[in-house]
Design a binder for these strands. Structure first.
Length: 269
DNA sequence: AGCTCATGGCGAG
DNA sequence: TCGCCCTGAGCTG
């Protein structure tokens, strides 16, 4: 259940495990058998992440394009690999490592031009140094849609998901319901810079932490014991609990079918 | 054992 | 905007 930081992390791990190796590619489940045959026994040249999209390159100029969706998962480990169990869409085997992909929304083979087109459809990704935030700004600046919705729009902010959306809005005191048109350049610029920092940190750590150092003592003292997603956050999945900073109850509503968390007092309309 | 929910996105209407 | 796809963990009973 990944946001962009996780995909970038996986791209690095896959590159480290397989780049420059001749690899065996197959599909134990069978649903990717045709695609696997196109790149099997080729040299894996490297992996790239663009937002939540992962591209795995081969020396015959073909790419595997993977999107995990909500349920997809990679498992990467050292040989010997465990016995196959469950539905493995794609398996990669090198000299000493293996990787298994389960449950992706998308797993297909693209030619190099098709890969260029796929990337062009994605907006700027805060984790990539080559991203141009002005591409996001022009979409925000002229949109009547809520900023909470724009942050989840992959053509505007590639790689941002439900946690970073909620947390970056909280950190900047911005209501999720404010239209893009009413966001000022300074606010946008600050949020973008913050996403670059938070998501890059998230890539290294493999978890999403958004609580500022000066608030940690307060948060650690009052947070609920059980929260599965793993990092320290201000509002995500904290509906009904008190805001760590002002004590107001964290609100929950539905925005385009996704859960949205915010503090009505720290993020006034 | 069965149900619900999850860091997503697509296509039909 | 809704339903649907995909899988696994964490509940309930």
């Amino acid at each position: 259940m990944p946001e962009g930081n996780v995909i970038h992390n996986q791209a690095r791990r896959l590159s480290r495990a397989f780049a420059r190796h001749v690899v065996t590619i197959d599909s134990p489940q069978g649903r990717f058998a045709d695609g696997a045959a196109l790149v099997d026994h080729h040299v894996l040249t490297g992996c790239e992440a663009h937002g939540k999209h992962l591209f795995i390159g081969f020396d015959n100029d073909l790419w595997i394009h993977v999107h995990l969706g909500l349920f997809g998962k990679w498992r990467i480990g050292k040989q010997p690999e465990p016995e196959v169990h469950g539905q493995i869409r794609l398996r990669i085997r090198g000299n000493d490592k293996y990787a298994e992909l389960r449950g992706p929304t998308m797993c297909e083979v693209l030619t190099a031009p098709e890969k260029v087109i796929a990337i062009a459809k994605i907006g700027p990704d805060p984790i990539r140094r080559d991203s141009d935030p002005r591409r996001a700004w022009v979409r925000v600046e002229r949109s009547k849609a809520a900023i909470g919705s724009l942050l989840m729009d992959q053509k505007t902010f590639a790689g941002v998901g439900n946690i970073y959306r909620a947390e970056v809005l909280f950190r900047h005191g911005i209501s999720p319901f404010r239209p893009g048109q009413e966001i000022r350049w300074a606010e946008f610029e600050a949020m973008w810079a913050d996403l670059v920092d938070l998501m890059s940190q998230g890539t290294k750590r493999g978890r999403i932490d958004t609580v500022r150092a000066e608030h940690m003592p307060e948060v650690m003292g009052r947070r609920a014991r059980k929260d599965r997603h793993g990092g320290e956050v201000y509002v995500y999945r904290r509906a009904g609990q008190d805001c760590y900073l002002c004590g107001t109850g964290i609100e929950l509503s539905d925005m385009q079918g996704r859960k949205l968390y915010w503090c009505p007092s720290c993020q006034p309309a």
